[in-house]
């Protein structure tokens, strides 16, 4: 076992893990933060997306030991003082989810790329949103309302 320490949602955490433990398992099992989902187990669906040092990554495709010393944000870390993050609120307002399983990954991916586009000054149009969502699979919505939610949130972020 190896002891790993990192900051998750602003809180210092540590735990003993096997070296083969995936970051997503550390988050879900050790920390009990089950908002981060495992959808496919083959690194394709994006339900497990979290931010590691500000970058959206698939937590199922990174070892927990590799995240030593990192700053991590999960879906549980977005709402502040009981207020939903604008992206969460937009998904609610625009019916951006049906079963909701992919939603944490969608929201973590979207918050990252909206921010990234804002910093780079490139316009985030519908085509860009759809391209940026290539790593996130939804089996219910057909994506239209997800795209609308992100467009809505981007105007408020």
């Amino acid at each position: 076992m190896t002891t790993v320490s990192m900051t998750v949602n602003g809180k210092a955490v540590s735990g003993d893990v096997e070296d083969r433990t995936l970051l997503v398992d550390f988050i879900r099992v050790n920390l009990g933060l089950t908002g981060t989902h495992v959808g496919c187990d083959t690194s394709q669906c994006g339900a497990c997306v979290v931010h590691v040092d500000g970058k959206a990554i698939k937590a199922c495709t990174m070892l927990a030991v590799r995240a030593e010393g990192s700053e991590i944000t999960t879906i549980e870390g977005l709402a502040k003082d009981g207020e939903l993050h604008p992206m969460q609120a937009a998904f609610k307002e625009n019916h951006g989810l049906q079963c909701g399983f992919c939603t944490p990954g969608m929201i973590m991916a979207a918050t990252e790329f909206v921010e990234r586009y804002k910093v780079s000054g490139i316009e985030l149009d519908e085509a860009a949103i759809r391209k940026e969502l290539e790593g996130n699979i939804c089996r219910c919505t057909g994506y239209h309302n997800i795209v609308r939610s992100i467009e809505d949130a981007a105007s408020k972020m």
Partner: peptide
Amino acid sequence: IGDPHVRNM
């Protein structure tokens, strides 16, 4: 290459 999350790693 891949998708944004893959490209970040």
